[in-house]
Amino acid sequence: MPAGGVVRPPELSAVGAFRPDGQGGLVAPAADLDGRWGYLDGDGRRMSGPALGHATGFDGEGLSRFRADGAWGYAGTDGAPVVPARFTEAGPFSYGLAVVRTPEGVGYADTAGTVVVGGAYRDAGRFGVNGLGGVMLPDGRCGNEWTRGFLDVTGAPAIEPVYEWADAFDPGAAVRELLDLPAREFRPSSLLERNEDPYDLDELDDHDLERTHFGAVRVVASSRLDAAWLTEYPFLLEETQERFAEVLDTCERRLRERFGEPLAHPGTLLRTGDGEWAVAWEADGRRLVLQLFELVGDGDHELQIWLAVTDF
């Protein structure tokens, strides 16, 4: 095929990053125009589907998470299920184990889908760069029902669960958390609109529904300045913008340290307003977006910084 030739007609709504299939070819998740997911080979031919609710990029174990009939499983690079869809939630693999949730609780499953560590935890985190994963265990030493500690990749306790809160040993922990969340349709919320849940799309009109994303999002920083305050204290806006610039600079610097140079073009903004700026990276075959958002309404002024992972 000549360079720049069309591999297949533009009949897809989303395509993930291509990864080696272990047989000398490539494979990627892709969705049709109705949002049904399957897998493509390197020539754009369908390997399976489209019949899935969602499919993610392939992780280091050569597995892709997919959702079918409301449950999550794992597919191999041939597009066929390796682990049937039976988990309430399923994360990517790290050190050969993945965080999965069932009605009984949370544990770590191997690549065959067998829960080999835990299974009844309240919560658990992906194993970090030092091979430790944080878990929530039933206890009472912190004055509540649960405490946090860390396991190694064998499931043995590495740090005793005596903490009310413990973050992951990973400079990209916030990103890992987003990547581990099940992908859902969302639109970042505006403080001026008083809708706090970005996944609640019931009140959106047709125009806004055409501008949603599929993935996960969290608020890094947010501030709403009422018109009355700005009239009385006009310096508040400039000072708030300066603080947000510092936060944004720190976040971008740390993400560069973890994920390298950003993409040349960030792609579609998470949301547009009266001022926005964004930068993006590729992370596990998905787009990692850091965005500043400003909106003005009736003299009120809001600023937010969002971190999100979305499908390409």
Rank of each mutant, 00 (worst) to 15 (best):
E145S: 14
G119R: 00
G155M: 10
V129D: 15
G133S: 10
T114N: 09
E145I: 11
P161N: 10
V135G: 05
V99C: 09
G113Y: 05
P138R: 11
D123F: 13
P103V: 04
C142N: 14
T154V: 03
A156L: 13
E160I: 04
G118P: 07
G105T: 01
L97A: 01
D152C: 06
G125L: 09
A112M: 09
T114R: 06
I159K: 01
M136Y: 11
A124V: 01
V116R: 00
G107T: 02
P138Q: 09
G128D: 15
T114I: 12
G119E: 14
T102E: 07
F127V: 00
G96S: 03
F150Q: 07
F150S: 04
D152G: 01
T111K: 00
P161W: 15
P103L: 11
P103N: 04
T154W: 10
D123R: 04
E160F: 12
Y95P: 05
G155D: 07
R148G: 08
F93A: 08
A120W: 08
S94Y: 01
T114E: 12
P161I: 15
L132P: 01
A112T: 08
G113T: 02
T147Q: 12
R101E: 15
V99S: 07
P157N: 02
A124K: 00
G113Q: 01
L97T: 00
G133H: 05
G107K: 00
